[in-house]
Amino acid sequence: MTKTIETIKRELARVTHPDELTVFFSDSRKGVQKLVEQTDKRLKKEALLLEKYELMCRYERTAYQNGAQYIAGIDEVGRGPLAGPVVAAAVILPPDAQLIGVNDSKQLSEAKRDQLFDEITEAAIGVGIGIISHDIIDQVNIYEATKLAMKDAIENLAVEPDHLLIDAMPLGYMDNETSLIKGDSLSISIAAASIIAKVTRDRMMKQYATEYPGYDFEHNMGYGTQKHLQGLEKLGITPIHRKSFSPVKEAMLRFE
């Protein structure tokens, strides 16, 4: 008895290796061959994601080989915006974590970031978050504020790390540190931290959007987009704007 296309669709959904497709090649129905083609594309995509994941684990593997037990990836988000805090995250993943699809948060959709945020939080040995307000940014400058956020994130971990993998910025927090340019695309731990930091800050800015409408914070997250600049020109600054940043300074002068 010939299987229905719906039955074959369910079977193909369970296929995990290209060799398993061979049995379906003899079915000449166009609907079946289309499903086989779709499954082949899915398997190739999954293989690329797994290859990318393995590549992004190489710095962690090196640190483990050198005796590390708790490796924290650290990243930040929010250095460039005109409003809101800078947020950093520190994430310690278990050696056997299988978070396929984790990548630089900027390369992911909002829905994918939200999904991975939950997966990372559930899988991680420790997640620490550091939040430095606009006021402190104005006092110490954004570079120093970013370092403060990173240090707070590390100190808010439930487990003390013995090796740090940091995106771009040398921190000087401990002897065992590795600073990686574009680390959020090179290290799985840093990429995980970038997702935690990004989702945390985005949710904060969406809340601020309800408190301070007219700046499009829910979409620009405080960055200086056209709608944000128009809001500054029309409404002036809010309590969360960074007064040391040029467009905000200019808006303050216009409203004095």
Rank of each mutant, 00 (worst) to 15 (best):
Q98T: 14
P161A: 11
F217G: 10
A149F: 08
V32E: 02
G214I: 10
T121E: 09
G236L: 04
M252T: 02
D118Y: 10
M205K: 09
E155R: 14
T62W: 11
R61W: 03
D152K: 15
Q139N: 07
E11I: 02
H241C: 10
A153P: 03
Q115P: 06
R113E: 11
V199A: 08
I237L: 03
K227D: 12
T62K: 13
V102C: 09
E110H: 13
V15K: 00
E122A: 15
H134I: 04
D167A: 10
I125Y: 12
K227M: 07
I142K: 04
Y70W: 11
A88R: 09
R14K: 13
P81R: 10
I142E: 09
E160G: 14
M1H: 09
G231T: 01
P239L: 05
E46P: 00
K243T: 07
G172K: 11
E76R: 04
A145N: 05
G78E: 05
E177Q: 12
G73M: 06
L21G: 00
G130W: 00
E76G: 14
E37M: 01
E256G: 15
P81E: 07
V140N: 12
I71Q: 05
M204R: 03
I129F: 07
I166K: 13
I131H: 03
Q107L: 15
L165Y: 09
T225Q: 06
I195H: 04
A158E: 14
M169N: 15
S28D: 13
A168I: 12
D184A: 10
E233K: 15
E76D: 11
Y208G: 06
I131R: 08
E233W: 10
V140T: 05
N176R: 14
Q226D: 14
P247T: 06
G84F: 10
L229V: 10
G67C: 14
G183K: 08
Y223S: 12
A72K: 03
Y143F: 14
G172W: 12
R14E: 15
K112F: 04
I92A: 00
A90P: 06
Q207Y: 10
S26I: 05
D216N: 15
F117L: 09
V87H: 02
I74T: 08
A88F: 07
M150W: 03
R42E: 02
V127C: 01
K198G: 02
Q33P: 02
K30D: 06
I125C: 09
D104C: 15
E155L: 11
I132F: 04
I74Y: 05
I195D: 01
I5S: 01
E20W: 00
Y59N: 04
A90V: 08
E144Q: 15
H219V: 09
Y70K: 08
L48H: 09
Q33Y: 00
H134K: 03
V32Y: 01
K34L: 04
H228Q: 08
R201N: 05
A153Y: 04
